[in-house]
Structure formats: structure tokens, C-alpha cells
């Protein structure tokens, strides 16, 4: 498996497998990230597909100024926000009936693996979307503050503040749930 940038170059030059490789590499994490924005795993999966369809159609230029993953997640965020607007405008947000908790749990098990981290992720998912996003990007995807700022269209300083507040909120939730935790 090559890295995303070279796979993308292959796709641009006509090799469809390039996009397939990117999907295999990044789609799981992307779904969880989008889920932190839209709070619905089914919609998140649809939006993930939409992200790749848009990439396939428009073939946006990847300049290499940031890591490929950062670039990809920034597109994902933009698409997710667009889709949210769409849903809010047409009020066709799928009902809770479509929300399949087992899907999210399966994905967490396969992608995050570590049980403690899964519990942490579940706690994060009840935070407000900004907090949820920033914590997911920093602590689960391993993005730096700078990269997170690039994805979320914030300044680095803002991201730091956001992380701080998010951790405070998370701490409160974990305490309410009776978790014992180490300092993040």
C-alpha cells in the first residue's frame, strides 16, 4: 500500500485502483470524523462516499502543502458541512430509526481497536460537534494542532483553546460516568 498522495496521482493519471486504495486507507477514519460533525453514522458513511465521488468527478489538485490526509479531511469537513446545510434546508435528515448503533460500534472496534479508547470515543461523541471534532482529530487521528487548524479552518491558537475546553467538557462527562482516567 502506497501513501495517499501517490495513490491519488495514480488515480489522476487514469488508474481507478488508486482511488480504491485511498478508500481502503482512509474511509474508516473519515466516517468517524464526519460522524463527529453530523452525529449520525449512516449519514457519515453516505457523506464519506460523497467526498470520494466529488474527488473522482472534480479531481481537485493536491498541491502537497499539507499532508494528503489533512487535505482529504479538509475536503471531508467541507462536504459534511455542505451536506448538513442540504439536510437542514430540505428537512430530509434521516430519522433516528435509521441510526444503527451497531454500525458505529463495529467501526470503532475495527478502526480504534483499543477498548479504552473506544469508551473514550463514545464519551467524545456526546460532546458538541466542535469539541468532538477537535478531540477526534488530535487524539484519534494524530493530527498536530497546526494540521487540525487547517482542517477545521481555525487558527492554531483557537484549536488549542478548543482542545482545552473540549477536554474540560470530556472530563466532566467521564466523571459523571464514573470513569477513572489519566490526564489526556
Amino acid at each position: 500500500m502506497d501513501n495517499g498522495a501517490s495513490s491519488y496521482r495514480r488515480f489522476i493519471s487514469g488508474d481507478k485502483n488508486g482511488l480504491g486504495d485511498i478508500v481502503r486507507e482512509y474511509s474508516d477514519g473519515m466516517i468517524l470524523y464526519i460522524n463527529s460533525i453530523v452525529q449520525n453514522i449512516c449519514i457519515a458513511e453516505e457523506i464519506m462516499e460523497e467526498v470520494f465521488v466529488e474527488i473522482a468527478l472534480k479531481k481537485p489538485k493536491y498541491s502537497g502543502k499539507s499532508s494528503f490526509k489533512t487535505w482529504l479531511y479538509a475536503i471531508a469537513r467541507h462536504t459534511a458541512l455542505d451536506q448538513l446545510k442540504h439536510y437542514s434546508r430540505f428537512s430530509d435528515l434521516p430519522s433516528d430509526d435509521m441510526y444503527d448503533l451497531s454500525d458505529e460500534q463495529d467501526l470503532e472496534k475495527s478502526y480504534i481497536r483499543d477498548e479504552q479508547k473506544i469508551q473514550l470515543h463514545q464519551a467524545i461523541s456526546v460532546l458538541n460537534p466542535d469539541y468532538s471534532q477537535v478531540l477526534y482529530l488530535v487524539y484519534f487521528e494524530g493530527f498536530s494542532y497546526n494540521e487540525t487548524a487547517g482542517i477545521m479552518k481555525r487558527s492554531e491558537k483557537q484549536v488549542k483553546n478548543l482542545v482545552y475546553r473540549a477536554k474540560q467538557a470530556l472530563k466532566k462527562i467521564l466523571e459523571e460516568r464514573g470513569f477513572e482516567y489519566e490526564e489526556l
Binding site: 481507478k16 482511488l19 480504491g20 478508500v23 481502503r24 474511509s27 453514522i41 458513511e45 464519506m48 462516499e49 460523497e50 470520494f52 465521488v53 473522482a56 468527478l57 444503527d100 454500525d103 463495529d106 467501526l107
Partner: peptide
């Protein structure tokens, strides 16, 4: 939740549909 191959198939199917619609 779809597996990887299903996701890829779905993505390319949507891609083909959009492309055809565009044309």
C-alpha cells in the same frame, strides 16, 4: 456498514451515474 469493496463499488457507481448525468 459496507465493507471496503462495497464502498468502492458504490462510489464508482455514483461516479458513473453523475458522469452520465453530466454528459
Amino acid at each position: 456498514m459496507k465493507n471496503y469493496d462495497e464502498r468502492i463499488d458504490s462510489i464508482f457507481r455514483k461516479y458513473e451515474e453523475r458522469l452520465a448525468e453530466k454528459k
